[in-house]
Structure formats: C-alpha cells, structure tokens
Nucleic acid binder design. Structure first.
Length: 271
DNA sequence: CAATCAACCTGGGTGC
DNA sequence: TGCACCCAGGTTGATT
C-alpha cells in the first residue's frame, strides 16, 4: 500500500524518466477512475508535453505544457508503470497514456480504489491540497509535532495516520515508527510525554528515510514504475509479524485492531 | 465539532 | 475442486 516513501519513489522515477514526453492518446476501461471524464481529460492533455512531477501527501501531480495538471492517488493497490508500447498489457491495467517514442504510462489498480483526476490549474490544486498536514520530511519539526499530538486524545497511531494532521504516513510506517519509539499504539496522543514525543519524531523520520532508501515496501501490491518491488518489507520489525518474536528479544508481536486497521506491536516493549 | 463507521472494490486466503 | 465467506486498508461521506 503506497505511503510516502512508495509514492515519493515513484515521483522521483517519473521526474527522471517521463518529463519531455508528449501525450498522444488516453484510453481507459475503468471510466469511474478517470475524472471528470475520459473525454475531458483527453481534451486537456493530448498533444501536451510532460513538464514536471510533484508529490504532496500520497498524491502525485503531473504537470503539462498547457498548465493542466493530472493528480493521481494510488490508494491501496494502484500502480503507475512506464512501459514500451509493445510490452504485454499489465495486470489490472485501467488507464493508458500513449506517449511519444512508443512509450506508455499505465495506471493499473486491482481494486479500483485509486483515481486519476484532471485539475484545471495551480490555483485549484492548491485549494485541493490545503487540507493536508505538514510533510513529515520537510515541513515537520519537533515543536509542530508536539503541538499536533497535544490536540487530540485519540490513539497515537490514528493521529500519525491522519492526513490532515501529518501527511503521507500510512499503516506500515505508523506501526514501525511506534515500535521503534517504544510507544503503545493505543496511547492517547495527548498523553505522550515530551521525551517520548521526541523519540517518536525521530523514529518517524527514520522509518520514512529507510523506506525511501529501500525504494518502498512491497509487502502486498506496491511496484515501482518499472514493475520492480521495493525491499523495505525485508526490514519490517513488527508489521505483518504477529506471533513472531519481538526483534528486541523478549515477547511476541501481537496483532490488534485500531480504527479498524491491523495494528502490530510488542506489548513488552511498547508501553 | 470530533469521533465512528460503512462504503468503495476485488484478489487472495480460509474453511467446509 | 468448488464455493461461500472474510479480510486487506486510504479516503470519503454519512451518522452519531
């Protein structure tokens, strides 16, 4: 499930490889996912050149030469794949941008939760993105983090994953950061001590950096634009490891639900 | 207003 | 082998 490190890995590769290509056509077999409609998207971007690719929270933004912007959310199972026209169709391929040079940018999505949306201009984009909390690897700092935690009595894990509080963190990185910081995911956010907050802040930065270094986690569906897996899943300390020994050596990792989401932690080390 | 929860989908896994 | 069932989780929108 793509979170900040996965989406950022895709962004960097797209920035490096698809800028300069011209869109020749757009096709879809999943019209719900292309918004507002295939016809309107075609009208806006066919004939245009890709200028740059940005990311905010888990949302990718592709900028075109006429000022149009396509924003993409991969949700749980979405993939963006940069292929040659002659390559065999990808599994769950739902939207295809035909590009110059016999290339294609494909949007594939097993569960069809993701979306691919046309935005008129920067002003509309800004409006749409303003609800998101700070970017953990650039805008966030310890005082801001402390302030965010102090404003809610909800479980700390819910706050870490709340995109309006902090953007880009999902289930995997929240679980890993809390383990690294030795904090029980059920603790009310406003009851975390100053010292623990500092540790959690550092842990969050660390797991996100690790995720980036390993080009994301491919525990489930995530693939990069070349169809390759990331490798951070090989370094998980708790995520998906219920019943296995805690890496610190004492107890066993437990699985519970918080906010309806699978939550993994060590009851011995995370208080 | 904050918190909770179903809905969106479908592949993959489980149990009978 | 077949089939009913359940589960995964990011986000939205309705409800409490």
């Amino acid at each position: 499930m793509p979170e900040l490190p996965e989406v950022e890995t895709i962004r960097k590769d797209l920035e490096k490889f698809i800028v300069g290509y011209k869109v020749l056509d757009v096709e879809t077999n999943s019209s719900k996912q292309i918004q507002p409609s295939l016809a309107i998207v075609k009208k806006a971007i066919v004939g245009m050149t890709i200028k740059k690719v940005q990311r905010r929270a888990k949302i990718l933004q592709i900028f075109f030469s006429n000022g149009s912007i396509i924003i993409i959310h991969l949700k749980l199972t979405g993939r963006l794949l940069f292929r040659n026209k002659k390559d065999p169709a990808d599994l769950y391929q739902h939207i295809t941008l035909s590009l110059s040079g016999d290339k294609e940018l494909r949007f594939a999505d097993a569960r069809k939760f993701g979306w691919f949306k046309l935005i008129k201009d920067e002003k509309d984009l800004k409006e749409l993105l303003k609800k998101f909390g700070p970017e953990p690897l650039s805008d966030l700092n310890l005082p801001i983090f402390q302030k965010i935690l102090s404003t809610s009595s909800r479980p700390i894990k819910i706050i870490l994953m709340d995109q309006e509080k902090i953007s880009g963190v999902g289930n995997i990185y929240a679980n890993e950061a809390l383990f690294m910081a030795g904090i029980n995911p059920q603790r009310p956010a406003n009851k975390i001590t100053k010292k623990e907050t500092e540790k959690l802040y550092q842990s969050l930065e660390k797991v996100l950096q690790l995720g980036l270094r390993y080009r994301g986690a491919s525990d489930n569906d995530y693939l990069d634009i070349f169809g390759h897996k990331g490798s951070y899943q090989e370094h998980f300390l708790v995520y998906g490891r219920q019943g296995k020994p805690c890496p610190n050596g004492v107890g066993l990792i437990k699985r519970i639900k918080i906010g309806g989401r699978g939550t993994f932690y060590c009851p011995q080390c995370q208080k």
